[in-house]
Write a protein that binds this DNA or RNA. Structure first.
Lengths: 268, 268
DNA sequence: CGGAAGATTGATAACTCTCAAAAATAGTGG
DNA sequence: CCACTATTTTTGAGAGTTATCAATCTTCCG
């Protein structure tokens, strides 16, 4: 029913970070839309004063109504939501260059929480300031829109993953996705390994397994020679086989798209 | 861990449809943003020529690159995506007043398919036309943005549902959501029953069960006196108990929000 | 060094799936 | 309107995956 494009390429870091200390947010948006000098410096302006946060801090509380947005310059965060009986579902991960959350501020409250997994370098931007910027620079607005579309595509993919695949495939798919994303922002090592600062509890809550079963599944992936995972570092030993197992196709992440020119204003 | 607001109210149809033949799309957007006369007639203008489609037709094909958007005036559709081994996951349902899909046209292809469940009355709008409209009417742009945010919230809720709840709760939650949405657009009967033109196969593919198990779960809900489901019509016999079972809180659907004034331009 | 958090293991139970077939329903053409 | 077929729903039995509970081992961190 579905065409499966053979799409196995996690290896070559497709992005060269303009320079090492470039604002991660600017870099990210620049991957979606061609930004000119003025726009770039407007973004850098905005992100001038990052602050250091501690692992475990909660950036947004479910139910709260923040008046600001966070730009992740460095570090990992996760979105989650709990069911009444206390089960946690992780809804997504935020990495360097991600914005969080352009939309909380529109409705009157957050429908989920965002928490830091690691120490992090983050810029808080008052909603008002972001507003002014996007009004002035439609291309920036469009780029932000595109990032939210990718997020939505990830949610759809996760839904498919969690609902239709078995434990091995679920974890495999998650690993592929994270590897692709981290590689895309230049966070993969030369050997292709990535830092994945999650406990097995997080892994389990990501794909809807218990920790015990996540652990056993992990052992399976290891003994099958597909991955290595120690000290919070993941190495994909056999990308082809892992992608194959996971039915992973990174198109939805839009990593390989080239920046669009601004054909027309963004719409919704 | 999670605050559970007691939030059990599916019953009173919170929206009065302005008049019975009002453009469903205009009505929907009007729930999010205060529209003036000019905006309303612009929308009605756009949606002037609906066409009739047949059940089963595919509105958007995964992988295609449409140059138009669809407004559903009447009828049911579903989004879906299949895994390599042919398992289908339903990603969402489209009902009267929904727009589909404002964003396909931005990226170079659809990452999933959309198919009609019933005969339907639909307006196809060339992307270009929609673009022009939202450029002219920022409030419309904002309203469309809000609809996409609700969609995203639904995806998050589905993820939690599919990953963390048991079979009974999953179905119960889905029923609550559909009842809330259909009630909100005035499609519930006086007795609160709703038309739900799905087979058990669709039900199963929605919440990630097999048809056999979906069937058994359904029987359980029935024999527990929670619902009735025959001839594609769902009646929730005991809304309180069903919501309680499902851990359902309709806040994320934003049905009870009152229209926002346009404080600032939408962003992303 | 000591305690806490995380990872691992074992045994058992529960839930959900698979396969297969029968019953009921809906749809179609004569 | 009926016959006939395809689809959908329902049922049964058995297998398999994943969850649960509880304990041990390991690692991390002050």
């Amino acid at each position: 029913m579905l065409s499966l494009s053979s799409c196995v390429r996690l290896a070559p870091p497709p992005v060269d970070r303009p320079d090492d200390r470039a604002n991660a947010f600017t870099t990210r948006l620049g991957r979606f839309v061609e930004l000119d000098h003025e726009e770039i410096s407007a973004l850098d302006q905005i992100a001038r004063h990052p602050r250091r946060y501690r692992a475990g801090e909660i950036l947004f509380h479910e139910g709260s109504h923040p008046q600001h947005v966070c730009l992740i310059q460095e570090g990992f965060a996760l979105r989650y939501k709990c069911s009444r009986d206390g089960k946690r579902q992780i809804l997504g991960y935020l990495i360097e260059g991600d914005i969080c959350d352009a939309h909380f501020t529109i409705f009157n409250k957050c429908d989920h929480s965002v928490q830091l997994l690691t120490d992090a370098l983050i810029v808080q931007i008052p909603t008002q300031v972001l507003m002014e910027t996007i009004v002035r620079y439609p291309r920036i607005e469009r780029a932000i829109l595109l990032t939210t579309l990718v997020e939505k595509a990830m949610l759809r993919e996760w839904l498919l993953n969690v609902a239709q695949r078995d434990a091995c495939q679920k974890l495999a798919h998650f690993f592929c996705e994270m590897a692709a994303r981290l590689t895309a922002v230049g966070l993969a090592n030369d050997d292709g390994s990535i830092s994945l600062p999650l406990t097995q509890r997080e892994l389990a809550d990501t794909v809807g397994l218990t920790t015990v079963h996540a652990n056993r599944t992990l052992q399976r992936l290891r003994s099958d020679g597909l991955i290595t995972l120690t000290h919070r570092r993941l190495t994909i030993l056999d990308p082809d086989r892992l992608c194959e197992l996971a039915d992973f196709n990174q198109d939805y992440l839009r990593i390989d798209d080239r920046p669009l020119e601004l054909a027309f204003r963004s719409f919704g």
